[in-house]
Design a protein around this nucleic acid. Structure first.
Lengths: 388, 388
DNA sequence: AACGTATCCGCAAACGTTACCGATACTTTT
DNA sequence: AAAAGTATCGGTAACGTTTGCGGATACGTT
């Protein structure tokens, strides 16, 4: 028979249902409900969680209160130097590691900046990350990176995860697919600093860091024109990206300035995977009246064009001028060298990070300058030098 | 006169020192100590912290308890479907975002894996990151990345930060400088899963993921030998890195197998910045009896050699064979193409990540296989094809 | 003595969740 | 109808910090 844990009666116990698969009892005598704890089922599985020494441990071992320890560890004023030293010694002795999680919870901040990038394969974003990482860690912040993989759905889920993890601020570069922005407006609503970089949009009231795509594109195309190229094709990015539109605008503007007619069938926009680049390149180079130059929106597409030209026996730069965008490492080494536009990637990371730190410092919502435009540089190599 | 906030006596108040610059009083009647709160100093500065809706808010608005809400949100069994729906609706209505911080604290885990890499400039580590990131996010884990910048001190501080942030596991690739390992043994002591990859050492009892550096190096050098090169120099990495030693070992073994003598002054070890590569390359190419091939420990050094050879009018591959290591993107495009060893970077990231997830699943400290060796691939391009 | 001052320390309430242990009302079985 | 079982829900103690404010003590000053 079972005895009541409370009144120790033995005859008065009866069953009272199940609680989570455990038989439940009630004592008719003292009306006490209880379950029998599982017969100590030898659960060596349960691996008693290794105890991390906490502030409380320190407090107990030297006979002061938690608050004293906390204050001592943070160099607070209201503390006796001797006490402080004792705390510090004991902390060292017990190998105390502060629990950032508890700190985060009580302070409701994480000292972490989030960053979402669409992809990782070009050296562009890794470089931006380096830049941001450098200035953030120098200021004691962490950086957690997520990759949206050019998918809007993933981007949304990433932002949600960032919110749940209570990052202090977010740096984001949008997906090719991103056309709606509620997931970003949340940050504004919550008062969490947000900065868009590189792949930006106009629908979010947040600071933006970009490069001078229009000017860069203009420079590139003008450079081709000045080198005697007449019919310049444009292999552009998807038009829902602002950068693509800006670069297209620059292309058109340069042609117009120099009185060239714009041939719409020499303009192709779309997301430029390597495969697509091959398809579009084939189309362009097999046109019966083929262009004598191509301005591509990124270096890999430009390189694809150069390789294809080589296959077809079209000489670069004599019969075909090529200019890319980004200055990937391989662009310096290919064929005659690819003329391209170098982007200040590291600087972009650094300025973005510095900016968000400023926003964090300023408790008040200041009127920040809304956009920062970084300068690119035209790197002239062999692929565009017909005149010389 | 001042009235006692407790007993409302008026005449019995007298000063009792200062506390944090505020006048303090004591009531002689009820012996109550108090300070007068500052006269409500209109602090609109204080920007009332925007309230995040919590579980408690939901609970209150539909008149249930916190536990019920928590259970409802997690699809627990013990819950009435109607209640669950009500909770879910209210959560949506109030735009509830779970506070991961609180969750982390109570569960003492963060669903986050840390990763420390020495640098970011080669495409190698970014690619590893992509691989790891993919499998981790697929399993609902986050990845926070830190960069030790090839500095031991930074590496140590990184690991400390990781510990403080209570990551669930750590993936690390060591610094060139790292020769002591207490900062890693801590993880073992704490029972936090740890995996070394690429830059590993033997002094830490943790799983390791590496490539077959020895074999790869052997293959590369043998390939040079089979192509008729006689005196093969080796531009190696710093010898405290295991990879460097393995590659050196492979180099020696290949020479020995084919009965070549090993000329020690054709072997240079050291950290291969671009500048150093130039210096060493100059030394090698200006040797009065210069080598007819170079096996470099990374592609950038190999490319530096090729460029320098071009400057000096030394023809590659006719007069100088070159083989690199890593297959950087530029290696496919330079000069005659750089023969090099392709490393399975993505796979390295993936296997490392999968492995640590296994370790997390297995509560017990299982006997994991201690090392996993991934296969590399010799990519043969023009820079080493003299025979053909 | 009686009062004023400065210094140091402790109490306890947050922070938002989770999960254990019960409790209640209702349904089914004996 | 009593006993047993089921389905839901609530109370509350953790988790480890930080911090506002009250309390105690020792010392200085009338």
């Amino acid at each position: 028979m079972i005895a009541c844990p409370k009144c120790s009666e033995v005859g008065s116990i009866m069953k009272a249902g199940y609680v989570r698969n455990k038989q439940r009892y009630v004592c008719k005598n003292c009306n006490y409900f209880f379950t029998l704890s599982a017969p100590e089922q030898l659960s060596s599985t349960k691996k008693s969680r290794r105890h991390q020494t906490t502030i409380i441990d320190i407090a107990r071992s030297i006979g002061v209160s938690n608050s004293t320890v906390s204050r001592a560890l943070h160099g607070h004023v209201d503390i006796n130097p001797e006490t402080r030293q004792a705390v510090l010694d004991m902390a060292a002795k017990l190998d105390y590691q502060p629990n950032q999680l508890a700190y985060n919870l009580v302070k409701s901040k994480t000292n972490t900046i989030g960053m979402i990038v669409p992809e990782f394969h070009n050296p562009f974003f890794p470089n931006v990350i380096i830049g941001a990482h450098d200035v953030l860690t120098a200021e004691g912040y962490n950086l957690t990176i997520m990759q949206s993989n050019e998918s809007y759905a993933v981007e949304v889920s990433n932002t949600k995860a960032m919110l749940a993890n209570r990052i202090d601020g977010l740096l984001i570069s949008l997906t090719q697919e991103t056309n709606s922005f509620e997931h970003l407006q949340v940050f504004e609503k919550r008062g969490i600093p947000l900065i868009l970089f590189n792949r930006v949009c106009d629908d979010v009231a947040a600071p933006k860091v970009v490069v001078n795509d229009f000017e860069a594109s203009f420079m590139a195309v003008e450079h081709l024109i000045l080198n005697g190229y007449e019919r310049i094709a444009h292999l552009g990015g998807p038009l829902n990206l602002l950068v693509s539109r800006e670069r297209l605008r620059g292309y058109r503007a340069a042609l117009e300035k120099h009185g060239k007619s714009i041939e719409e069938d020499l303009i192709i926009q779309g997301m430029l995977s390597q495969q697509k680049a091959r398809i579009y390149g084939k189309y362009l180079l097999e046109l019966e009246n083929r262009p004598d130059a191509v301005f591509a929106v990124n270096d890999s597409a430009a390189i694809e064009i150069m390789l294809m030209a080589a296959e077809k026996g079209i000489r670069v730069p004599e019969e075909l001028g090529v200019v890319g965008f980004s200055d990937n490492p391989e662009s310096a080494y290919i064929g005659p060298g690819l003329t391209t536009i170098r982007q200040p990637t590291l600087e972009m990371g650094k300025t973005t990070a510095k900016w968000i730190l400023q926003m964090l410092d300023a408790e008040e919502e200041m009127n920040f300058p809304q956009e920062r435009i970084l300068k690119t540089e035209l790197v002239i190599r062999g692929s565009s030098l017909r005149k010389a």
